[in-house]
Design a protein around this nucleic acid. Sequence first.
RNA 1: GCGCUCGUAGUAUAGUGGUAAUAUGCUGGCUUCCCAAGCCAGCGUCCCGGGUUCAAUUCCCGGCGGGCGCACCA
Length: 493
Amino acid sequence: MEIEDNIETFNSLIKRRSFIWGPSPEIYGGLAGFYSYGPAGMELKHNILSMLRRELRYFGFGEVECPTIMPEIVWRASGHLERFIDPVIKCEECNTQYRVDKLLQEALPDTIIDGLSFEEMEELIKKNRILCPKCGKVFQKIEEYNLMLKTVIGNDTIAYLRPETATTTYLLFNRLDQDARRQYPIKIYQYGKAYRNEISPRQLVLRMRAFDQFEIQLFIGKEQEMDFEDYFELKEYKLPLLDWQIQEKKIDTPNLISLEQAIKKKILKKPAFAYCLYLGYYLTKKVGIPEKVIRYRQHSPHERAHYADDAWDLEIKTNQFGWVEICGVHDRTDYDLKRHGDYSKQDFKVSMGSDPNVKEIPQILEIAFGIDRIIYTLLENAFNVEDGRINLKLDKHLAPNTVAVFPLVRNKEKIRNLALKIHRDLLEFRIKSFYDAAGSIGKRYRRQDELGTPFCITIDYQSLEDNTVTIRERDSMNQVRVDISEVPNIINK
RNA sequence: GCGCUCGUAGUAUAGUGGUAAUAUGCUGGCUUCCCAAGCCAGCGUCCCGGGUUCAAUUCCCGGCGGGCGCACCA
């Protein structure tokens, strides 16, 4: 069978080998923007999460988990209610839908549209006789398109599914502050589902309506942002930075530049923020994304989120979808805690600097990963077709199976029994072992290559005589013969 | 949401106004072999709803879903 090295082969692989299925529910035709993970996909996801959690523990971060549904007041305070509901207007004639604010801004470049109410915008449309750009008809009423999914708790409490995990983390600030015993920065992260009612979800798991976020937060003082201990150890470290000013010159290759240089050249303002960029980059590399497909792209001032003072997207180059954002690093300033302080009538001012009499609302720096996007870009980058062989080059700690065990032949009971015993012994060590006796030996190797299994162990006639087996390494396909007792060590090495 | 286009076994495709095929896959058996080997037997498909028709997987309409472009993506 001819195996072509193309995106179709990849797309069918992730379905065939139970990584990603959908749109779900498939048997009912599917709903756009919703996908399921199969057993292999979940193994991969869990392995990625374990790796991230382990690394973050090393960097001194703790984990929290909050409800995915929060009452309206939370989203009013966070600014999402205001910013996530877009005013749209529909032309009755040609059915085309427009964002009212964008339409107005284009028609009236000198008017400030931001912050106008629906009524005021309707008024502007009437007064300036703005017609449908497509067919020239008169517009009717402005409607709202809500990017947040709304629900009702009990009988009449309006609530929303969280559009990001970050906000729910911030609500814990006074608890975290106690827990951290005023040692700043407070380093905390949250992993979990977030929901956005995307207008047109596309591109597999890259733009879903229910997706996983892994959001890392630093609560930090203004003084500490500029004089941050962790930064000094890694200020020499170089990152591929594409700042917004280079982008304006239509350049899209990043500069490999040290954090220190970036600060000096005023590409970055704060050492603590530079540390966040480093951490995002470090974690991305840790899960096995190669350096050459990673870059940091800075948002231009008008591209930024409502809460952000500075924003950089960590992007991965993919074959199918070009550069894909997998992580956003944001300087959220004291925006969030200020707002939640105001709305909840709590005082979030704490003394964080050298002078205990000076109290301030903490600044927040955020590193927000989209786990589903990591999974997709990782799979795509791991995918290789080599001499007609599909090889998924996943890091051995991430592969769904760490090892597969095969009897060379199936109809020799002694060989089969020894293979099964070795498989069970590996499981006893809690090594992710998979046993397979079906089909030819070559076919079994190929099946495991498609799942990214780093090692295959084959039990043959010689094994019965001298207690040795062969271990085959996925990428080289090289085999070495070793004593059975050595197997766990070699795999865990 | 709009426009174009597509929707056939698990996967990839062919084809047709008279309910379907090729490869691969999967199951059982034989063979026993170190890189998708062979043999035998078997399994499995026309996205959903409506219309036209004696008869629809095929034609028409609507829906749902995919791809591309526009818009959107804090």
